[in-house]
Write a protein that binds this DNA or RNA. Structure first.
Length: 682
DNA sequence: TCCCCTCGAGTTCA
DNA sequence: CTCGAGGGGA
């Protein structure tokens, strides 16, 4: 099943079908994980399945069923040789957080629920041990029963195995009924030893220490469990009576340590930033610990407030699991779809089982072109290693497991209009040549036409263009300027769902303002193949009217510095094409091209005159758009890539790779303050 | 002719 | 961010 669609785009019917699928998948994987200790999915993949289920249920609350896995955890306990044990209070798993921002949201939610100021809350942070939760009941100081978490409400009786875990105290100096909860785990060293033994004995090795611990804990023969050296970290103590009286989580951990339990290092934090620090410290120590951890558990410190917060559905409201997110993850390619851009270029995109990579749930990865598919020999069903380039853009690193399916074939027809697809001479990409009639291409072209470097029409993005196009209100870029007339045929825009009087008049004003357009924007908006903002600037610096440019010979264009014969020919040919020319004539009936180049009026002695400027990071005092206009109006060219030709780099907050690159190349850098001061002088 | 650099075009998620 | 192609110097 394709999980490619954004939740917002799902129809009720599709949502229902996908929910059914997700629920049965989650149940199946729960069973594999809890009952058989042989998961098929990585944790990241499993978490992503759950995240998708929640997102859809949140959007379509009417589809939530009482039996949805979102209402329970774990698997039904079937055919278990162990007696069932009902927990006094449910042992729920925690909601996941993947960023400091998520943690902040969790704090805000807890504070809102308690109707107190978030600043008044304190949190106890503990490393999240990658093991299994277990509960131990003591009566009058002696172990009465040990159980697994099971499905959160009912677990299995494993008292005989709990008894032989060395750091679970056999007696405690407290009378009455006491429950201690904690995490059973296997050290990395024991895990390796046991696996090498298993391999030499011809048995299948465990996938990871947690699976090994799970398998070891559910042994009928306690002697086997004993040989596996399981260990225990306690994190919770309570009693139905008043035998245990602790006010905070920190006190609880201290008390547990005093009565002979092992507890992890922990720290009291006052806000999300401090939690973030603890999390980073834990991550740094991760490799040197003798056991595996997969994040930080963040708990509201006050036990009283914990009780008041209670539970919501499957998770307690008082704690959150702040997980480490891997920078790479494996996932299965479930489908390969084709996307089409404004130029007609067809790009294959792999749809993968959603996985969490560096804190984002990734479900689509571009494959760039069909050579990539050939080179890496990619097929639907293969397992791929996914990373995020620069920790942002999803990237397929390699294929790690072949499915044996046939390599994905180059398509013969356009995914949007069905017309035949061509592979242009000596070029890696496939193209749909139906430029003016292919819906996919036209929608993308109109969107580009209205976008920031071109006509910059505010309120006309891809969503709106798609809507207007399907409706017939806009069929070509020129129709943008006839939108208002079209109201007689299609009805007032302000009455369309999602539109109002204000948004409609804002759009019309923005369009009206662009009926005068600079030559640079006009040429850029033509989307001449190979001509973007930069080349358009070169062209309009050499030709001062659109007529001159149209009339130019290949040689005239070739004469421009940095434009060679091949580009010159492409540009020249573009203007020899009758459909392109008709498009230009139509446009010129609706808009006036200002002859002045954007450099006009700029002071040639100014600091930014004819300089190449790059912005990086966030500007605090103004939008990047405004800053860009300031420098371009003093004659600068703004580009996005730092290179040796760059004259200035303006550095904002949280600047990344570009800043580093600029330092290496020794390019002059200006802070936002210096920049503001320098443009004021101009 | 062979690199190295730059640009265009396409891509993702929160 | 990445890939491929174009431009231009070696």
């Amino acid at each position: 099943m394709a999980t490619s669609k954004s939740v917002d785009d799902l129809s009720l019917l599709e949502a229902n079908a996908e929910l059914a699928f997700l629920r049965s998948e989650i149940r199946r994987h729960d069973d594999l994980y809890y009952n058989r200790a042989m998961p098929e999915l990585s944790d990241a993949e499993y978490d992503a399945l759950r995240a998708r289920l929640y997102a859809i249920e949140k959007k379509f609350p009417t589809l939530i069923s009482a039996h949805s896995p979102s209402r329970s955890i774990g698997a039904p306990i079937d055919n278990s040789p162990f007696a069932k044990v009902r927990h006094r209070s449910p042992m729920l798993s925690l909601e996941n957080a993947f960023s400091v921002l998520d943690v902040e949201r969790f704090f805000a939610r807890a504070a809102r629920f308690l109707r107190i100021n978030p600043a008044a809350l304190e949190f106890c942070c503990e490393p999240k041990i990658d093991g299994l939760s277990a509960s131990v009941i003591y009566i009058d100081g002696k172990i009465a029963r040990g159980s697994t978490r099971g499905n959160g409400y009912v677990g299995e009786d494993i008292t005989h195995n709990i008894m032989i875990i060395s750091d679970i105290p056999k007696t405690i100096p407290i009378q009455g009924e006491i429950e201690i909860r904690g995490e059973v785990y296997m050290s990395s060293e024991d895990f390796n030893d046991i696996n090498s033994e298993r391999i030499s004995a011809g048995e299948p090795p465990f996938a990871n220490p947690r699976n090994a611990a799970a398998g070891s804990l559910r042994q009928i023969d306690a002697a086997i469990t004993a040989s596996r050296h399981l260990q225990f970290f306690a994190y919770h103590i309570s009693s139905p009576g008043d035998a245990v009286n602790v006010e905070t989580q920190v006190d609880a951990l201290n008390m547990l340590a005093n009565i002979g339990c092992s507890v992890t290092e922990h720290r009291l934090c006052r806000d999300a930033t401090e939690v973030g620090k603890f999390h980073e410290d834990a991550m740094a120590k991760r490799g040197s610990l003798r056991y595996e951890i997969d994040g930080t558990v963040v708990k509201v410190n006050s036990i009283l407030l914990q009780r008041r917060l209670g539970f919501s559905g499957r998770n307690p409201r008082h704690s959150v699991a702040f997980k480490f997110s891997a920078s790479e993850a494996e996932s299965t390619i479930t489908d390969i779809v084709l996307s089409i851009g404004r130029s007609g270029r067809i790009t294959p995109v792999a749809i993968i089982n959603p996985v969490n990579v560096s804190g984002a749930i990734i479900s689509r990865v571009t494959l760039h072109n069909f050579d990539t598919i050939d080179k890496k020999c990619i097929a639907v069903g293969d397992t791929a290693l996914i990373a995020r380039a620069g920790d942002v853009i999803p990237k397929l690193v390699s294929i790690t497991k072949k499915s044996g399916n046939q390599k994905f074939e180059v398509p013969s027809v356009c995914p949007s209009c069905g017309s035949p697809v061509t592979r242009r001479e000596g070029v890696a990409d496939m193209y749909c040549e139906n430029r003016y009639a292919c819906p996919g291409q036209v929608i993308n072209y109109i969107t580009y036409f209205a976008s920031e470097p071109c006509f910059d029409i505010i309120g006309l993005g891809k969503i709106q263009v798609e809507e207007f196009y399907t409706e017939g209100r806009i069929k070509t870029a020129v129709d943008i300027f006839r939108l208002q007339e079209k109201e007689t045929e299609f009805g007032p825009l302000s009455q369309k769902p999602g539109w109002g009087v204000v948004s409609a008049s804002n759009l019309y004003n923005s369009i009206k303002a662009r009926k005068h357009i600079s030559l640079l924007r006009f040429v850029t908006a033509l989307a001449i193949p190979g001509v973007g903002e930069h080349i358009a600037k070169l062209l309009t610096d050499s030709f001062s009217t659109i007529e001159e440019l149209v009339a130019a010979s290949s040689n005239d264009i070739d004469a421009i510095d940095n434009i060679g014969a091949s580009l010159a020919k492409k540009v020249h040919l573009f203007f020899r094409n009758e459909i392109n020319m008709a498009h230009i004539r139509n446009l010129l009936e609706s808009v006036t091209v200002d002859k002045d180049s954007p450099n006009y009026g700029a002071n040639p002695a100014g600091k930014y005159y004819k300089k190449i400027v790059v912005f990086t990071g966030n500007l605090v005092g103004m939008s990047r758009e405004h800053a860009k206009q300031l420098v371009t109006s003093s004659g600068a060219i703004v580009t996005s890539v730092v290179s040796s030709k760059t004259d200035f780099v303006i550095v904002g907050e949280r600047a990344g790779a570009k800043l580093k690159h600029a330092q290496e190349l020794g390019i002059p850098m200006l802070s936002e303050e210096e920049f503001v001061a320098s443009v004021d002088i101009d």
